[in-house]
Every structure is written in C-alpha cells, then in structure tokens.
Amino acid sequence: MTRIFVCQDEALSDGEAIKVDGPEAAIAVFRSGGELYALNDRCSHGNASMSEGYVEDDATVECPLHAARFCLKTGTALCQPATEPLRTFPVTLVDGAVYVDVQEAA
C-alpha cells in the first residue's frame, strides 16, 4: 500500500476538493460535512476532473462537465449520464496531515 500526502488538514475547507497524483491515476480528495473522502479524479462518463466539480452538502459531487452526481462515501454514480462508479480510497488523518491510502495493482 502507498500512502500519499494530500495537504495539512486546515488547508482543505468544507465543500472544497484538491487533486493529487496517485501511482496509477489522479485522486480527488473532498471535505464535506467535516468528513474527508477520496475518489478517482476522472469522471467515469468523460474526461472531467472531479476535483473541479461541485461538492454538495449531502456528501455528493457533481461533475463539472456533464452534471452526473457521485456519492463521496461509495463512489456510486447517482444519475445519468454516468452509470459506472468511481473508485474510492481510504483517507487518513495523521498529526494534522491528510493522506490517501492507495492499494497498487499487482
């Protein structure tokens, strides 16, 4: 497993997202309702960065290009045009720093 540093905890405000490079693809890290979530950054419907999407109060994010919505907790696609889920990643807070844990493909 690879642990990727994202940012200091106070650098990511509620309703915001940040993109980090993962070993295989970019990862979007979100704060919604005080909780931290991480998803694959690329929309499953098209070439859009989810970190540039609209974070909603109900722990969802809307794609900035196609208005598809995804659950931040599970990655589930909640409406068309997306039908495929986004991969989720565990987020860890250690000594005031935010990390994403990524299991690399074998």
Rank of each mutant, 00 (worst) to 15 (best):
Y54R: 13
Y37V: 07
A77Q: 12
D14C: 03
A77T: 13
T76S: 11
Y99W: 02
D101L: 03
E62Q: 15
A97V: 00
H66E: 10
E84C: 07
D101Y: 06
S51N: 10
Q8Y: 12
P23G: 03
R87L: 14
V6Q: 03
E56G: 09
H45L: 08
V98N: 00
P81D: 05
G34Y: 04
D95I: 00
A67E: 14
A28Q: 05
G75T: 05
M1G: 14
T88D: 09
L12W: 00
V61N: 11
A106R: 12
V94E: 15
D21I: 07
M1C: 06
K19A: 15
D57F: 08
T83Q: 13
T83R: 12
I4Y: 07
L12D: 01
P64Y: 06
A48Q: 13
D58Q: 08
N47L: 14
A67P: 04
C71K: 11
G15I: 09
D41T: 02
G33F: 11
P85K: 01
L72H: 09
V61F: 11
G46S: 14
A105Q: 14
R3N: 08
F70Q: 03
L72F: 12
V94W: 03
V55H: 02
C7D: 12
C7H: 04
L39K: 09
V20D: 02
E56A: 14
A67C: 10
P85I: 00
D21E: 15
E35I: 05
A105D: 14
A105L: 14
A38F: 04
F5W: 01
M50S: 09
V102E: 01
D14Q: 01
A106M: 07
F89W: 10
L12M: 06
L39V: 07
Q103M: 12
G75E: 09
A17D: 06
C71I: 06
P23L: 03
A67L: 15
P85A: 01
G96H: 01
A82V: 04
A38N: 05
E10Y: 13
L36W: 13
T60G: 08
G33M: 11
A11R: 02
V91K: 00
L93D: 05
D101N: 08
L78W: 04
L86Y: 08
L78H: 03
Y99M: 01
V61W: 11
L39T: 10
A105F: 09
Y99I: 00
V61C: 10
L86W: 08
D14Y: 00
Q8L: 12
D101V: 11
P23V: 02
E10W: 12
